[in-house]
Design a protein around this nucleic acid. Structure first.
Length: 260
DNA sequence: ATGACGGTACATTACCGA
């Protein structure tokens, strides 16, 4: 059975309830992982009427927030507060297929890529170090890790590798920390496994006059899987169209399917 | 090319995002 998972930084789930409904209706993933819900859990809109009656979430007022929506029941298995920030940035749930889904919203890290002058950058690196330690201690099996990891690791994950080398999200130290997380869990970058060639973006700034024409994007949103979980070859895609929907999120949904 | 945008809240400006 194919299990299709989608991850999307929605930038306020209440403001964009209609966009979530459109995605669920048009694309019908089995599981939708949202980040930046910016809502307490009890105020997240219900999508039960569209067939998504199961939700596992962590929320807080105004910032952060992660939710996993599913057509089938979910069992919450973890909600980590890496680096002790007190933020709603992770939740994990098990699907009846036996697949564990980790939904992450990694800290953005502020403006300056130097932890000595920018506390947020240090928190981002510490958050990634704690993720690494978790997956070193517990090697994931039949698991997927998705979310807004706020790092574009590869040269073709940004519009200009050279111009972004010192920009938070693409600095070598962040890329090294993310790679440490990936290696600690033996995670496979499913998107790049399926789409190894060429530029690939999932985020475009609101500030560009014409985001699509400028196309100065970054691949910040990721789908990883443990090596024992077979994927449906070629099933990875980024729904760039959704960045052009009315009142869009600045992130596009990322999809992959698994053979469960 | 640190931005011309856009979200939320102890709101009409401050803070955050990346």
């Amino acid at each position: 059975m194919p299990l299709t998972i989608c991850t999307w930084n929605i930038n306020s789930v209440r403001l964009r309830e209609a966009l979530v409904a459109r995605l669920l209706t048009e694309e019908a993933p089995d599981i939708l992982c949202l980040q930046e819900c910016k809502s307490p859990v009890e105020k997240i809109p219900s999508f039960e009427g569209l067939g998504y009656g199961h939700i596992i979430a962590r929320g807080q007022k105004g910032y952060n927030g992660v939710a996993i929506l599913s057509r089938q029941p979910l069992e919450e298995v973890a909600a980590h507060d890496h680096a002790g920030l007190g933020h709603a940035r992770h939740v994990a749930a098990r699907h009846p297929s036996g697949v564990t889904v980790h939904n992450y919203y990694v800290p953005a890290g502020g403006d300056v890529a130097d932890r000595e002058v920018n506390e947020k950058f240090g928190q981002k690196l510490d958050y990634l170090t704690d993720m690494r330690d978790l997956f070193s201690a517990q090697k994931p099996e039949r698991a997927v890790l998705v979310g807004d990891l706020n790092i574009a690791p590869l040269e073709d994950d940004v519009w200009s590798h050279k111009q972004l080398l010192k920009v938070v999200s693409h600095t070598p130290i962040e890329v090294a920390h993310l790679e440490d997380v990936r290696q600690a869990g033996n995670w496979v970058d499913v998107t790049r496994d399926h789409l190894p060639e060429g530029k690939l973006y999932s985020w475009w700034s609101y500030r560009a006059r014409d985001w699509s024409a400028a196309d100065k994007g970054r691949r910040l949103d990721h789908v990883w899987a443990s090596p024992d979980l077979p994927t449906v070859p070629g099933s990875s895609r980024i729904l760039r169209d959704a960045r052009g929907w009315e009142k869009p999120s600045d992130h596009a949904p990322v999809f992959a399917s698994f053979d469960v």
